[in-house]
Design a protein around this nucleic acid. Structure first.
Lengths: 212, 212
DNA sequence: CAACGACGGTACGGTTGCGTCCCGACGTGT
DNA sequence: ACACGTCGGGACGCAACCGTACCGTCGTTG
């Protein structure tokens, strides 16, 4: 038995949270600034004002670092989404997505990592857990409830529905990077609801031409 | 006048097209394999089986190389899109997009460059010219004709329409990277048509705006 | 209060890529 | 046939980064 009982690390010999936090923040900024491809540990350390060793003590590799931090950052923050109507749920979801993608860091990091996922299985797996799975879950609940209420046809395919719900807004905010004009989200709610096959008996408020 | 009349380069002293082509192909493959961030001229040269000098003689920098080649690759190939109905145009467009994004190279390069565009103004400008502008043009024609036929409301906003048309399919193929199941594109045509406000049978008279 | 033990920082060799320079090879035009 | 002039290739100096080893420092615990 080489490992006798040892004193637990204490005092100066314990990881300082402030350093860990600084590394996390620096990583996000570097990731946004240069992307995963060009990301270097040295640059993260420089930006965080710490040494490389401080990073290597906490994470074994660049991939490890990114995976852990990204997964942590993507946790929490799932809206309740139970407004009682399909359109209400969509509106809430779109606002949450729009709010999240407004953060410059998020809007640069997410597309970058999604592109990287196409060639890095670890990143792909992590993103599928924290992003796609969550979308499927949220979208699933949203669609299921709408079906139960009779707002959507019973044979709605979840996959296709998620594409229709997430695609347009993601495209606009993260890819095309165009601004959200007034009423855009409201129109989108209507368009997506109609696209999903929502009952057109319900009133469809169309964006009225702004008359001053 | 230092530049007197000189013999034009001839014989061995002229750029060989085969080399240029090999570089182009190697660039695409490298771009797909490692992304723009990690792209190195050396790797391109290695893969193409040429020397670095061969590349530097043709392009002044890595950015130059990527911009020129990507712009060239994105030219051509715009479908006629004049089937006479909104749904027909959509179906044709979707098939073209799906076909293009099926190429493994394209489906890796395009998201990568789009992410890179968020931090590189030159790439951003180029992509806007060759991708977004073209989408606006195609989408514009498609929507305009549908409006003229009475299939879409006259106040359709082009921007939002393009998001709705391009977003879902791009999301599925390039981001989520899920397969196209049987009938997916057909369903998508219906969904998008409905989302744009197309009536299922007859051109819809404009709904009265409901204040809200 | 003194020993402990991981802390953060610096220094190091190795690797990779950049951009340039020089070289012999080569095909055309005079 | 020869001169021309760029070709492709290899080598070079320079810079950045990786991952590790070693160093003195520091707060807690017995």
């Amino acid at each position: 038995m080489t490992t006798e009982k040892r004193r637990a690390p204490a005092g100066a010999a314990v990881l300082r949270d402030e350093i860990t936090t600084a590394i996390r923040r620096a990583l996000m900024q570097e990731l946004a600034a240069v992307g995963y491809g060009r990301l270097s540990i040295e640059a993260v350390a420089r930006r965080a004002g710490v040494s490389k060793t401080a990073i290597y003590r906490r994470w074994s590799s660049k991939l490890d670092l990114v995976l852990e931090i990204v997964a942590a950052a993507a946790h929490g923050k799932l809206p309740a989404l139970d407004t009682g109507t399909l359109r209400g749920d969509l509106a809430l979801l779109f606002q949450a997505v729009a709010h999240a993608l407004r953060h410059p860091l998020a809007s640069q990091i997410i597309p970058d990592l999604l592109a990287e996922a196409a060639r890095n299985p670890s990143i792909d797996a992590t993103l599928r857990q924290v992003l796609h799975a969550r979308q499927q879950e949220i979208g699933g609940r949203l669609v299921t409830r709408a079906v139960q209420r009779g707002e959507l046809p019973a044979d709605t395919e979840l996959d296709a529905a998620v594409d229709l719900i997430v695609g347009p807004l993601y495209w606009r905010l993260a890819i095309a990077r165009l601004p959200l004009t007034d009423g855009y989200l409201d129109n989108l709610v209507e368009s997506v609801a109609a696209g999903l096959g929502a009952d057109s008996v319900l009133p469809r408020p169309r964006a009225a031409p702004i008359s001053g």
